[in-house]
């Protein structure tokens, strides 16, 4: 009997986890903070991968004067970006570093993974983990690379984020 109880306990935990995954996604719309970001061109040239488009962001390229972390970071390390809303509502990068900064009104903190440093152009590349936008299969031809787009994302208090729309 006890074994049966454990078994159904484990099954319920699995079902609950899947429900939470879905629930968290919808809950974000209510409690999350909306942030609009500008895209940047990505490598490779063709961003279309069948069922998703590859996105790059303006704020993923950090210039030397915005960078406040150590000089040489390993790829994959966690860094924090401090973003601030500009006029027209698009968020821009204030500063970035390995320490979590305090945010004021109109500012948000976004966690990212450090990628690599372009020493020639002195630009630090990071990855905010929102580089794939899944779309309906076989509708991808309408996404073209060279256009600059605005991406609306939403940040949840529980450290989750998602892309809401791509204009």
């Amino acid at each position: 009997m006890n074994k049966q109880r454990w078994f159904y306990g484990l099954v319920s935990v699995q079902a609950l986890f899947l429900l939470l995954m879905a629930g968290g996604y919808y809950a974000m719309d209510v409690v999350g903070e909306k942030v609009v970001l500008k895209t940047a061109p990505v490598d490779p040239r063709d961003p279309f991968y069948g069922d998703y488009v590859e996105l790059g962001y303006d704020i993923e390229e950090i210039s030397e004067d915005q960078w406040q972390g150590e000089k040489a970071l390993d790829g994959g390390e966690k860094v924090f970006l401090l973003l601030e809303a500009g006029e027209n509502g698009v968020y821009g990068l204030q500063k970035a570093g390995t320490e979590r900064p305090d945010s004021e009104e109109g500012q948000v903190v976004l966690a990212a993974r450090y990628l690599w440093e372009d020493e020639r152009a002195s630009i630090h590349h990071v990855d905010i983990g929102l580089n794939r936008y899944y779309i309906e299969e076989n509708t991808g031809r309408m996404w073209e690379q060279d256009e600059e787009r605005l991406v609306t994302i939403v940040l949840a208090p529980w450290n989750q984020k998602k892309i809401v729309s791509l204009d």
Partner: peptide, 8 residues
């Protein structure tokens, strides 16, 4: 579900 809800 991760794919449906854009989890990374």
């Amino acid at each position: 579900i991760g794919q449906m809800y854009h989890y990374t």
